[in-house]
Design a protein around this nucleic acid. Structure first.
Lengths: 144, 144
DNA sequence: ATCAAATCAGACTAATTTGGTATGATTTCA
DNA sequence: TGAAATCATACCAAATTAGTCTGATTTGAT
């Protein structure tokens, strides 16, 4: 039930782009140094985000990345899926399963929780957008 | 966001025990064959479950494992924590973090989603019991 | 007493995933 | 032309995962 560093990094990086949306491309170097993410690793992530159509890459001097859509139309789930693939609590609840079911035949007794969990996770990630996060700035969270 | 096979197996095994609760100990061999789980692997898991106080192990011939509490008082979260440790979406939302925060200092912009996600996951796993899944008794809502 | 069935315990291992690095090519602006 | 940037792929070490192996100990039944 852990988030990969890919997803963590990617979401943070995307929130950076969201916060500066409309102000031209931002370079990997810039984002990496602001967020404390290894540059070359972030480069990989941005390539995946680009292939998923979430960002546009501007090459050459003065280049960088920009969101392709408005921040409030890109969900955290979009970003997570782009870098980590389909969200899947287990095979039988995966978003990309090919008719895979518990025990290959019938549903196991535990299936209802996994299903509920899967839906709960997707629902939260789907309903939170980069716009939400970019607007809710760091340090403003009263909890914890 | 994937469940480990440890958790999957452990929950399924515990539901087996729950379904036969009160009918004496059930052996690993029995559970393993019913659920299609490697025996020796399941043995490890049951040892963790015992150390967590969720089951009692009866040694010797005719032995096996039994739940130490009523099925509807053992949550799926209890089982998951027993075999996989504290539930943690990321370090800064982990159930056992030692004051660890995003960037070691302030909260990152993404923190609100991770926090929401963590709470959502724990809430679902906490509120579903082995009794619910086994279908035995004491009427909580059947998931899904 | 002996034997078989079972838990107990820990070390070991193969494969996969994770979290990166390294190298170099290509594009673009100045 | 040169620097700044993305693009692309290959490589790698460490950790994790999902087991297996070996053997000890306990207990019930013959």
């Amino acid at each position: 039930m852990r988030l990969s560093s890919r997803s963590e990094y990617a979401v943070r990086a995307m929130v950076e782009l969201a916060a500066s949306h409309g102000a031209g491309p931002i370079s990997i170097r810039e984002v990496a140094s602001r967020e404390g993410i290894p540059e070359k690793y972030l480069e990989q992530l941005f390539r995946k985000l680009r292939k998923a159509g979430l960002v546009h890459g501007a090459r050459g001097s003065g280049g960088g990345y920009m969101l392709t859509r408005e921040p409030h139309t890109i969900s955290v789930a979009d970003v997570v899926r782009a870098v980590d693939g389909p969200i899947a609590v287990c095979d039988c609840t995966s978003e990309n399963r090919d008719g895979v079911q518990c025990h290959k035949r019938s549903l196991c007794a535990a299936h209802p929780v996994w299903d509920k969990l899967q839906k709960g996770i997707v629902s939260i990630l789907d309903s939170t957008t980069l716009g939400d996060l970019a607007g809710t700035s760091a340090g403003s969270d009263p909890a914890d």
